[in-house]
Design a protein around this nucleic acid. Structure first.
Lengths: 206, 206
DNA sequence: TCTGCACGTTACAGACCGGTAACACCCGCG
DNA sequence: CGCGGGTGTTACCGGTCTGTAACGTGCAGA
């Protein structure tokens, strides 16, 4: 019985996960994020995961498959975020919307790079890349979920509000990569809250 | 006196420009846009420009230099857009703002890929890439120009309006690459006009 | 103890990339 | 006519990339 296994088994898995497959995905997500998908090679990913290229290719038939798997993991994180958000504000959709805005801003603070999904869409220019369907599906699901929240809140035009907030966040995250955190994205929270307030009143203009 | 030169001299330069340097830049912009900067090689660019890699390297010391030159050309187009916009609405900033929104939407219709500057910022993940300064400067200049227009129009909070519109357009162009033209970006004009209207009234809420 | 399976290691293939060297060519200009 | 600069051509270098082959190893479970 080696130490490596006992230590892992003892306290969950806070450090590197035991199985090579998970370690690869974790490291791949990190490195794709830092260097871009085209900017890092599978060899470096396997190395960072403490394994080797051969094992990587035994789990993922190609680099593209690994990319898709990483995007799916991103989706899981997003799903968890939604659950936490709705659990924190079960009966107050407006508060949930406000929390969504603030949460979006918080995520931006730590990250120099923006949204993994959007970045991948930009980087993988080929129109038939296998990741593109995944990206489109996830982004659409995200918007629909936000629209559902707006609808439950009784916003004036829930779909338009959801679309506006979606573009605002998307823009903030990409703007950060162009001009940094001091640019227009710095006032994302104020914008979001102001726009939400606009959609809260029944009908201001005739 | 050869034909090639006379024809060019006669009717401006609608077809391929005469000099290899310009042809290279034109083709590079097109191919960078279609395949991404990392997705196309200098050899293919030189080929598309009807010349060869050696000539390309005689004009541009490196691929990065060519990238920077292309971004500068993008800036020239943006400059021309601003001139046209302000010339069309010399004394009506609100109309100019509205035209800006509609023009932004028009540019999106034809383009599957979004903003060259933002795409480059996403793709060139290295923090010290020579193109990053160019991108940041141009994006900042763009925002400042929009803010100036908002200020001249007498908007309630000109800077916040400019930032909001900037993020909205940025988001629309990147969203298109994720979910296509039927996504949230489809209603960019409505959003922009609604937001501008909000900033036009003196102060709606106490 | 034996067997099977996941994993590690090394080496390699084949392609593409950015960038350079050397040389031939053509054409305008003096 | 000769000259020089911009251009075309070919070949090449060294590196990196994705992906594969072949073989060795160590552990787990029967």
């Amino acid at each position: 019985m080696t130490d490596t296994i006992t230590t892992i088994e003892e306290h969950g898995a806070p450090a590197p996960p035991a199985r090579p497959r998970e370690r690869i995905v974790v490291q791949a997500r990190d490195l794709f994020r830092k260097h871009g998908i085209r900017g890092i090679g599978v060899d470096a990913i396997a190395d960072a995961a403490g394994t080797n290229k051969m094992t990587l290719y035994r789990h993922f038939g190609s680099k593209d498959e690994l990319v898709v798997e990483c995007l799916r993991k991103v989706a899981e994180d997003i799903e968890a975020m939604w659950h936490a958000l709705e659990a924190a504000h079960p009966d107050d959709p407006w508060a949930a919307l406000d929390a969504w805005v603030r949460h979006g801003a918080e995520r931006m603070i730590c990250d120099r790079r923006g949204c993994d999904l959007a970045n991948a869409a930009v980087e993988l220019a080929e129109a038939d890349h296998p990741a593109r369907h995944v990206i489109a599906d996830l982004k659409t699901a995200y918007r629909d979920r936000l629209a559902d929240l707006c609808r439950r809140a009784g916003a004036r035009d829930a779909d338009l509000l959801a679309d506006t907030l979606t573009l605002l966040l998307e823009g903030a995250r990409v703007s950060r990569q162009s001009v940094g955190p001091e640019g227009p994205s710095a006032r994302f929270v104020r914008m979001g809250q102001a726009i939400i307030a606009t959609f809260r009143t029944p009908a201001p203009s005739p």
